[in-house]
């Protein structure tokens, strides 16, 4: 029975986002139709959909069960639709596998080394625990959500009833973890510390691998594994203080803050790299919208970072491309973040 529960959790965290990712990837060019891009697109799509679904339920103080039904129904519909989008993407994967087979032994060995370093980090995340005091809020909130069927209406430290915790309610990562827990039957602490600690690390490296592909294209592609090894070591040795993005990404991978620091912000730069190109596909805009909403899903600090970063990027991209359409769409993608930021300032 326990193995079935873990199987269900793994299904929700790995294949479901992967299939969902077929939707944005369908609208991307062939070079971007990679398994890593598909997985990261699916993860960000599922976070974004969760954000827009969960926040109204939370603010209206509806039950968690109602949210579980609504969100699961949406995911099922998207999943079925995503399956119909898979055809062209799978063909692109097959071409990539053929191209990889033709690579030199040096490059294959480099990739093997990068995968080993990243795999060791994932294994370490599963086998070792890291004491972080903030889990006493975030994981406890997921446990309360599942147990009492309410969202942010109980004090995480005591379990007692309290008015809506507006400071945290707009970034419902713990509620998402409670959703995973409800559907799989695995306790939220195990969902976060054992499954998401590894899966969201994988997501982080998927994002970085796509940035790597952008930085090292054509004749520079042979340097991709070197970059991946360097960046994996950079994260491993990034604990220069308690405050760095690397420390949060490696020690609090399962928390919204860790997700923001390690994954969402690099994904934002991936979007900027895509949008700075002369020809921009629809899929890149879809990804930007999902990443912006995922930032809000992760942490309230996004209300400050996202409009600043996207606003600045829109200006530079507008100047570089001498056009207004891309910057205008980029700024439009920030509207939900700004609206939620306004709600945050009013409610806190």
């Amino acid at each position: 029975m326990e193995i079935l529960k873990w199987g269900m959790l793994a299904f929700l965290v790995l294949p479901v986002p992967f299939i969902l990712g077929m939707i944005p990837v369908k609208y991307m060019d062939k070079a971007q139709k990679t398994p890593a891009m598909t997985y990261l697109c699916g993860c960000f799509l599922s976070f974004a959909v969760f954000e827009v679904t969960a926040v109204p339920f939370i603010l209206l103080e509806k039950s968690f069960t109602a949210l579980v039904i609504a969100y699961t129904a949406i995911i099922v519909v998207l999943f079925v639709y995503a399956l119909s989008c898979a055809k062209g993407t799978v063909a692109a994967y097959i071409e990539q596998i053929k191209a990889f087979r033709a690579e030199t032994l040096h490059i294959k060995a480099g990739w093997a080394a990068a995968i080993i370093v990243i795999g060791m980090q994932m294994a370490y995340a599963v086998m070792f625990e890291y004491y972080d005091g903030d889990d006493a809020y975030y994981i406890a909130m997921a446990v309360l959500t599942d147990t009492f069927d309410t969202m942010y209406l109980r004090d995480a430290y005591s379990g007692y009833l309290r008015p809506l915790d507006a400071r945290h309610a707009l970034s419902p990562t713990p509620v998402y973890q409670a959703w995973l827990s409800r559907l799989s039957g695995i306790a939220p602490a195990a969902v976060a510390h054992t499954m998401l600690a590894a899966a969201w690390l994988l997501l982080m490296y998927c994002v970085i691998s796509q940035i790597c592909a952008k930085l090292f294209d054509r004749d520079k592609r042979k340097y991709r594994p070197v970059f991946m090894i360097f960046i994996a070591l950079w994260f491993a040795f990034g604990n220069i203080s308690l405050y760095t993005a690397e420390t949060f990404a490696m020690t609090r991978t399962w928390q919204g803050k860790g997700l923001m620091a390690g994954t969402v912000i690099p994904a934002l730069f991936l979007c900027f790299l895509n949008l700075a190109e002369e020809k921009v596909d629809k899929g890149s805009f879809m990804l930007l919208v999902c990443v912006v909403l995922s930032a809000v899903f992760a942490t309230s600090v996004s209300f400050m970072i996202i409009p600043t970063a996207v606003g600045l990027a829109a200006v530079f991209i507008g100047i570089k491309k001498r056009e207004i359409k891309t910057p205008a769409l980029m700024l439009a993608s920030c509207v939900p973040c700004i609206l939620l930021g306004g709600i945050y300032l009013v409610m806190r």
Binding site: I211, F230, I231, W234, M260, I265, F269, T308, A309
Partner: peptide, 13 residues
């Protein structure tokens, strides 16, 4: 946390 928005690791590597 705003400093997280600087792609330090990516640019250095």
């Amino acid at each position: 946390r705003v400093f997280w928005a600087l792609p330090v690791g990516i640019l250095v590597c």
